[in-house]
């Protein structure tokens, strides 16, 4: 395998725990607010590492820029979506879970 392929492999393996934690957090965390933390933060880092993994494989600048643009869009969308869902829940009067 070429050195670039190894770098891709390492980045993908590093991304795996983040994706897993995002989904496990969705199941384990006690309320919507906590679940938003898990999904937004963990999955965005996971995607960032997948983008980094693929950056070692690109053949042109425009491909690389496109990958980065996709990640930027997801970051922007993810942060906005998390805020909107949390705000909506708060306005509907959902009390955050507290440790008893």
């Amino acid at each position: 395998m070429a050195p670039d392929d190894w770098l891709t492999l390492v980045c993908l393996l590093a991304a795996a725990p983040f994706f897993l934690a995002g989904s496990i957090g969705l199941l384990r965390f006690p309320d919507l607010y906590c679940r938003l933390h898990a999904l937004t933060k963990a999955d965005n880092i996971g995607l960032g590492l997948v983008v980094l993994a693929l950056l070692w494989q690109v053949t042109s600048w425009s491909e690389a820029l496109k990958l980065l643009l996709i990640w930027l869009l997801v970051l922007l969308a993810g942060a906005t979506v998390a805020h909107l869902i949390a705000r909506n829940a708060l306005r509907q009067g959902q009390k955050p879970w507290e440790r008893p």
Partner: peptide, 11 residues
């Protein structure tokens, strides 16, 4: 949260 899930893992 499904939207968020497909927005990251799906991508």
């Amino acid at each position: 949260l499904a939207a968020q899930l497909f927005g990251t893992s799906g991508v």
